[in-house]
């Protein structure tokens, strides 16, 4: 796995510890002492839409804040950022963020985003979806967006369940988990989002978890800065529909459960297969600059034909 220097820098700034002692402060990121840059969240939010409709303690809010911090740190012009979201709890993010936003039908985020990016190549296209949106109903689009390597950032908030519709099992629901549609435990094997994205051709693939919001920020920031298809899977907590039936209905306990399973890429490389069993590796898991980016390629070719 290639590890470019840029990502090395990020890692030095943000040494990720496998988080076994979860503290409430860690979830509320603004209070975290290591968050050196002050962020005026209201600048990036549609404040008339606040508070959000997400359940209290929902990880989607943490991801939204991480996204705001990432954009803030890159000092991007708000008018140059386009958020595309689909249907599901994650889909609400386009209503709350004060960027150019596009709310699309279930699963169709990536084709809408492709059109957007091709029409406005200068825009920073950020796609926010859930696991059901990106991997089930929009699974085919996910593969092809990765294959084309379009310069955009796909943030998959993976909460292991269809949250908005009330807790049906999704392509990432762990085998044996209870859901509304699997009262005896889910039988279906899950997608490994990261490996699917790598195999399909995405050029920046990272995984993170809301148990470490600063890490989510860094992963998203890396994806935004990367030119090409960036996929960031953010493991998130749906304590209402997933946790309540499986781990715990309390957000802090479910986040701690996620945290216990994650292990940093830095540490994971010193672990053998036996030790890694049941652990989810987080960090930048794939980053290459070798594949041509589609939109730039397209405009280059178009210009060549015109001349």
């Amino acid at each position: 796995m290639s590890r470019p220097t840029k990502i090395e820098n990020i890692r030095r700034e943000c040494p990720l510890q496998p988080c076994t002692n979860f503290s409430a402060e860690e979830a509320s990121c603004t209070a975290a002492p290591w968050d050196n840059r002050r962020v005026d969240y209201p600048d990036y939010l549609r404040n008339d839409k606040m508070p959000t409709q997400w359940c209290s303690g929902c990880g989607a809010g943490l991801v939204m804040k991480a996204l705001i911090r990432a954009v803030n740190e890159l000092q991007w012009d708000k008018n140059k950022v386009a958020i595309v979201s689909g249907i599901g709890c994650s889909g609400r993010m386009s209503s709350y963020l004060d960027f150019n936003t596009l709310h699309t039908p279930h699963g169709r985020t990536l084709p809408f985003a492709t059109g957007l990016k091709l029409a406005k190549p200068d825009a920073h296209v950020i796609i926010v979806t859930g696991d059901g949106d990106a991997l089930a109903i929009g699974g085919n689009h996910f593969l092809h967006a990765c294959r084309r390597n379009i310069d955009s950032t796909l943030i998959i908030i993976n909460n292991f369940i269809y949250g908005l519709t009330g807790g049906q099992f999704s392509p990432t629901t762990p085998v044996g988990s209870y859901a509304e549609t699997s009262p005896d435990g889910s039988l279906e094997p899950t997608f490994d989002t990261v490996n699917v994205a790598i195999a399909a051709g995405a050029t920046y693939v990272a995984r993170s978890a809301v148990s470490n919001p600063r890490h989510v920020t860094e992963m998203i920031k890396g994806g935004l800065a990367h030119s090409g298809m960036s996929v960031v899977e953010a493991l998130s907590n749906c304590h209402i529909n997933f946790g309540r039936r499986n781990v715990s209905g309390k957000p802090e306990e479910l986040i701690a459960w996620i945290s216990r399973q994650t292990v940093s890429h830095d540490i994971a490389r010193y672990m053998d297969e036996e030790q890694l069993k049941g652990r989810v590796v987080v960090g930048v898991l794939h980053h290459v600059e070798t594949r041509p980016e589609y939109v730039a390629n397209y405009y280059e070719k178009a210009a060549a034909i015109r001349n």
Binding site: I137, L164, T165, G166, E180, T181, S182, P183
Partner: peptide
């Protein structure tokens, strides 16, 4: 496949 407002049908069939 779940969709509001008819998701409950599928859930109840599952149960």
């Amino acid at each position: 496949y779940p969709i509001t407002p008819s998701t409950k049908i599928m859930e109840m069939v599952a149960s």
